[in-house]
């Protein structure tokens, strides 16, 4: 294992972990989603490094395509002001917590 290649591995892994932490430590929903889409891209580098181009291809196609679009659309929808009737507006602050 030549060292520059291993560096790249360590770099990718550190980024993946930091990114996933940031996704969930983030208050802004939209920012989380952007970071999540970025995570998809960086994971495909991990697949490349692990000699799995098949999976990299799938990840790139889905993350940049349908999943990304779906997530962004959901964020937009959850911010839309034209909810037919909104009984539980307060819930948006996320004060209740359970799994």
């Amino acid at each position: 294992m030549n060292s520059p290649v291993l560096w790249l591995d360590i770099l990718v892994v550190v980024i993946l972990i930091l990114l996933s932490i940031r996704i969930f430590s983030e208050a802004s929903l939209f920012k989380s989603v952007v970071l999540f889409i970025a995570l998809g891209l960086f994971v495909s580098f991990a697949w490349v490094k692990l000699a799995a181009p098949d999976i990299a291809l799938t990840e790139a196609a889905l993350g940049a395509g349908v999943t990304g679009a779906l997530l962004l659309d959901t964020v937009g929808h959850l911010r839309s002001r034209n909810v037919p009737y909104s009984k539980h507006r307060h819930a948006e602050d996320g004060t209740s917590s359970n799994a």
Partner: peptide
């Protein structure tokens, strides 16, 4: 969200 406006459980 459309039915209730809630985004949490």
């Amino acid at each position: 969200y459309t039915e209730t406006g809630a985004v949490t459980l």
